[in-house]
Simulated scan of single mutants.
Amino acid sequence: MNSSSNRTALVTGGSRGIGAATAIRLAQDGVDVALTYVQDEAGAQAVVRKIEGYGRRAVALRADAADAASPATAVHDAADALGRLDILVNNAGIGVLGPITSLTDADIDRVLAVNVRAVFLACRAAAGRMSDGGRIISVGTALSRYTGGPGGTLYAMSKSALAGLTKPLARELGPRGITVNLIQPGPVDTDLNPADGPFAAGQRGATALERFGTTDEVASLIAYLASEDAAYITGTEVAVDGGHAA
């Protein structure tokens, strides 16, 4: 992989899980990183210390993606703190699961605000601050590519919107050499969906590899798409799902 030295990134939802693994992996590749968090300040600061341990600059920004003003503010604060913005990783997201008849208006509003509106607003702000040759990578879900279990309608719908954002935005920003891609993770071992949790057996059995993925495996794909080596990959969806959709 070509060096990413002197590049900067914003990773939303970077205090734990895929976001934390991504922030750390980018730092290992020579990227200075800003990350957002909502409540887990201790986790965010732990990630900052790990990034600094690799000799890179790091900043943790408190930002609630459900707040309409927050995504753009995070982009501008990250660019100001690090001096520029080369990479945006839209990782922050929430899931509210349950039968469609049980979902409240508040559930719907918050999921769409975080998983759809916040991503769009961050991309809009980044388009104005990002250097030519930049990278935008969003984290979706394999549940938007095949029929998942009952109760996933709202979450899958919200994440499916990211494909509709990725492709035309890649066309729009392509003349500037900015790539826009979407990754679709399958079951990944995180605090919210542990590999030994009550719903893990069915997810594990549905993959070709018969196991959960790790956050580091997902982060490695994001790091590749953020690298110079991936300059000719844009407007696409890349599954990292252990063969769940095979």
Rank of each mutant, 00 (worst) to 15 (best):
T153G: 14
G140K: 06
T12E: 03
Q39V: 03
R211G: 01
G98M: 05
R171T: 12
D40S: 13
V75Y: 11
A81V: 02
R56S: 00
G83W: 06
H244P: 00
V75Q: 13
A126Y: 06
V114C: 07
D132A: 11
L192I: 13
A66R: 02
V33N: 03
R171G: 05
T36P: 01
G186K: 01
G177F: 08
E172K: 04
T215L: 06
A68W: 04
L169A: 07
V119F: 09
T141H: 07
N193D: 11
G133F: 06
S144N: 07
A226D: 00
V75F: 12
F199P: 02
L121H: 10
S15L: 01
A78Q: 08
Q39P: 00
E52R: 13
S4D: 05
N181G: 03
V139T: 15
L88W: 11
A230G: 09
D77P: 02
V180T: 13
N115G: 06
H76R: 15
L165T: 05
R7F: 04
L82M: 09
A246C: 12
V96P: 01
T234H: 12
A69L: 00
D191P: 00
Y146K: 13
I233R: 05
I51T: 13
T190G: 02
P194E: 11
I51P: 06
R25Y: 03
A125I: 09
F212C: 07
H244N: 04
S138G: 09
D32E: 13
D105Q: 14
R176Q: 12
I24F: 00
S220A: 15
P198Q: 14
Y54G: 10
A66C: 02
T207P: 06
E237G: 01
